[in-house]
């Protein structure tokens, strides 16, 4: 594995290797000294074209715990408004000797472009691109679910919300199906892509019918501004039909857990009681995010590429 661009690029073995490596990284969190020397002398650049403090500090913590040097490059806005092109930014990072580039970008495919353009030699990690993918989020979600549910083979996982615009949903559907889970996405029809025939999941418009058959339910953030584009009539109606409150949560099987990638709109897609309930693993997701990102950076940058036979380019 040279880059991590799409959860769909991971084989089941790749995914298990990352998850197993993350378990080892996770155990580090319970030790007094939370640092490994694995990436000493390597430089990781966090290249963030969108504001995302949560994801950026998660990658930053992960890289630092592996003893990498971390440079945060915050370039808000598109290349057009900023005045410098993505290409020039990439060439700058290359000139500075970035071994790994963690890229968050508002344009779907931007990390793919960085990885394939020849502008830089380092490994590219997609930290969320437009409405395309967010593979490390899916990995940390799978990791969190695996810790609670064991193997995900045959597990019923329900993803609820704005699937159309969600990079989290895309990556999760791809990864969870690779891991053998039965995935169902639930949303109003307006918030599903018009043709999902190629997606390895089931779809439903009915949350209440799906919840009793769910081992885990993941609530996606829904942006209020979607109302202005007529995706749904009002926040209240969305909450009534697709929000997870305690009454709905009671329909879940006993062991089922509730996830949310954050940041939450409490009272919109998830009620405060649910977010703070014992079923909620939302805070744990954040902790696990650091472990997953450590595992990804370690596997991409430590020089021992066990996940594929592809040799890293010098």
């Amino acid at each position: 594995m040279r880059h991590l661009l799409s959860a769909g690029d991971l084989s089941r073995d790749d995914a298990h290797l990352i998850l197993d490596t993350a378990e080892e990284m996770r155990s580090l969190a319970d030790r007094p000294i939370k640092k490994l020397p694995a990436l000493r002398g390597r430089t990781v650049v966090n290249l963030f074209f969108e504001d995302s403090t949560r994801t950026r500090i998660s990658f930053e913590a992960a890289a630092k715990r592996l003893s990498a040097d971390v440079i945060n490059f915050s370039a808000k806005g598109s290349s057009v408004s900023k005045g410098e092109s993505l290409k020039d930014t990439a060439l700058t990072l290359q000139a500075m000797g970035a071994d790994g580039v963690v890229c968050r970008h508002g344009s779907s495919g931007a990390p793919h472009l960085l990885a394939t353009s020849g502008w830089l030699n380092g490994s590219v990690v997609n930290a969320g691109d437009g409405t395309h993918e967010h593979p490390t989020q899916a990995l940390l979600d799978a990791f969190t679910m695996r810790r609670h549910l064991g193997s995900l083979e045959g597990r019923r996982i329900t993803i609820v919300g704005d699937v159309l615009h969600s990079r989290v949903a895309r990556s999760n559907v791809l990864l969870l199906s690779t891991l053998g889970a039965d995935v169902t996405v639930v949303a109003p029809p307006t918030l599903l892509p018009v043709d999902m025939t190629s997606w390895p999941c089931a779809t439903s418009y009915d949350l209440d019918a799906t919840l009793p058959k769910s081992d885990a339910v993941m609530m996606l953030r829904v942006q209020r501004e979607r109302m202005g584009e007529a995706f749904f009539p009002s926040a209240r109606e969305y909450t009534r039909r697709y929000g997870l409150d305690v009454h709905r949560m009671a329909q879940l099987p006993d062991e089922a857990i509730v996830l949310h990638p954050g940041p939450m709109n409490r009272g919109m897609e998830i009620s405060a009681e649910v977010a703070d309930s014992t079923r909620s693993v939302i805070v744990e997701q954040v902790t696990n995010g650091v472990a997953i990102r450590m595992a990804v950076l370690y596997l991409l940058l430590s020089g021992t590429n066990e996940t594929t036979n592809e040799e890293p380019v010098a």
Partner: peptide, 14 residues
């Protein structure tokens, strides 16, 4: 707009 636009996360032109 079609199956592929949904997968690629690129806004569809129906």
């Amino acid at each position: 707009e079609g199956a592929l636009s949904g997968v690629l996360g690129l806004t569809g032109w129906p």
